[in-house]
Structures are given as C-alpha cells and as structure tokens.
Amino acid sequence: MASRDLTSAFLERRTAANRRRRSSVGPSSKMAPFGISQMKHGIVDDHLLMEDGNALNDIGNNVHASACLPPDWVDDVDAVNATISDIRRLTSELTSMHASRIGTVFGRDLDDMERRIERRTTEVTTLFRKAERHLQRVGASTRRAGGEESLVGANVQRSLAMQLQSLSADFRQGQRRYLSDVKAQKSGGLMESEARFGINLEDDGTLQSRNDYGFGSVQQMSVVDDLQAEIQSRDTEISQIAKSIEELGAIFKELAVLVIDQGTILDRIDYNMEAVVEHTKTGIQQLEKAEKSQKSARPMKCIFCLLFTIMILLLILVAKHRH
C-alpha cells in the first residue's frame, strides 16, 4: 500500500506559477485607475469599463466565495453534533449512577440517588428530542434549497440519524437493564423489609412485652404505611422510566425511516449516484415538457379563434341593427 505525496512538489510549482501570473497581470492592474479616472472625466470607454467590471466582479466573486458564510442548517448540524456528544457524556454518567444505585440497597441517599437518576434520564430523553428536532430542521431547510444541497442535507440527516439511533439503542438497553435490576431488587427488598418487620416483631415481643397484645398497634400501622409509600415511589419511578423508553421508541421509529439498510443495493455508492443522475434526467424531461406545453400555441389559437368569431358576430349584429 505504497503512496506518494506530491504536495510539496505541487506547492512549489504553484507558487512559481502564481508569482509569474501576478507579475504578468501587474501592468493591466495599473490600467484600472486610469479607467476610473477616465470615467470621472466623463469619457466612457466601453472596453475598459467592461474589463474593469469583470475584474471587480472577479474580486467580488472571490471575496464572496471565501468569506461566504455556511448556510443556517450547518448550525443545526453542529447543534446535533454537540447534542450527540452531550448525550454520550450523560449516558456514561447515567451508567455509573445506575451501577451505584444498584450497588446500594439501604441508605439515606437512596431516594436522592433515584431522583438524580430520574432527572438525568429525562435530560437525556429531552436531548434526544432536541437532536431529532434539529435534524428535522436540517431536512426541511435543505429540501427547500433543492439541488445538490438537498442531497447533502439528506445524507447529513442519514449519517446523524445512524449515530443517534445506535446511541438511543444503547441508552434504551441501559435503561431496560436498570429497570429489571431495580425490579429484582424491589421484590428482594420487599422480602427484606418483611424480614425486618419480622425481626421487629420479635424484638417487640422480647423487649416490649407491653405491646404483646396490641398486634394491630400504631407502630405496626406505621410500618405498613412506610412500605406502601416505598412501593408507590418505586412504582412511579418505574412508570416514568417506562415512559421515557416509550418516547425513545417513538424517536427510534422516526429515525429508522432515515437509516439505510446495510448490505442492500441502497447502500451502494454507485447505485446512489446513478439514481441521482436518473432523477436529474427525469427532472429535465419534465422541465422540457413544461416548457413545451407553455410555449405550445394551441391555447393562443383558441383565443384568437374566439376573438375572431366574436368580431364577426359583432359585425353581423351591427349590420342587422342598421336595417
């Protein structure tokens, strides 16, 4: 896999060539002020003016091309890229948070941790939505622009959609794993709290014989209440996660439309190029057809024919009334 770099040789030659060109162009650029002064004097030299205009135009084009700002949708693309990197960062944080959440069973900061996870999850989900919104905007604005740009836009959309889709798939998988782990822990946790409950009962029995008879005591009720509260909080947590998965699923589906199936003919570079040429051809054909129909004289003939008839009829009418 040898290769050869001709850049330095090329640059050398180009500098030499451009220097030569500049020195040969030199005299004609001296002509320019002359032309302008002539114009000031009111002597209009068509030829010089034209040359001047061309030179100015050239410079203008050059400046225009080099300083031309990229279109708006490029900002959207940048936004999507930034969002993607944000999502990457947040998801990795989220994974570590999941791990630490799964790792701890008890502790005061459990709820706090879950809340944080929840917040992060919604954040990521909104980021996904944001990226998708930007992506749609890219599609819309490039489609409006038409031509090559719409093609670029479609390809940008496709590539970004591919990245987003794989990210969202990873994210959903992580969520699902977390969810099932939490669920497993929850059922385990319930048993544990029941065990705690049992121990409590025994403790109650040995230490506080006064409560032996009051089985339906206030303390017990409060334990049940606690459990209920815990169950409820976990329930909302789970339903929230399920909701986020659902939303992501919707996004996934929307993105799937954009992503190409790999290994099919649609993934061939040459096929796509041929398709573009084909599209252009049919476009040109349709344009030609439109032009022809616009130019075609049939409607005009009809109009003239009718006008002529009207005139004749008018004449007949006038002639009739004269009698």
Binding site: N155, S159, Y271, M273
Partner: peptide, 29 residues
C-alpha cells in the same frame, strides 16, 4: 466510482462525514 463502491458502502462514507458524492465529469448545473 467503481473502485470505491467495490470496497466501501454509502453508510461507511457517511459516517466519515462525506455527505455528497459526485462525478467530476458531470456537467453540474
């Protein structure tokens, strides 16, 4: 074009931020 499509795919070059592929000999409008 043939060489490129022989070993690479559209999705591969898209992932490398190649967003437009055209022929140099095509008279573009």
């Amino acid at each position: 074009t043939q060489i490129l499509s022989c070993v690479s795919t559209q999705s591969e070059i898209l992932s490398r931020e190649v967003y437009l592929v055209c022929r140099i000999d095509e008279p573009h409008h």
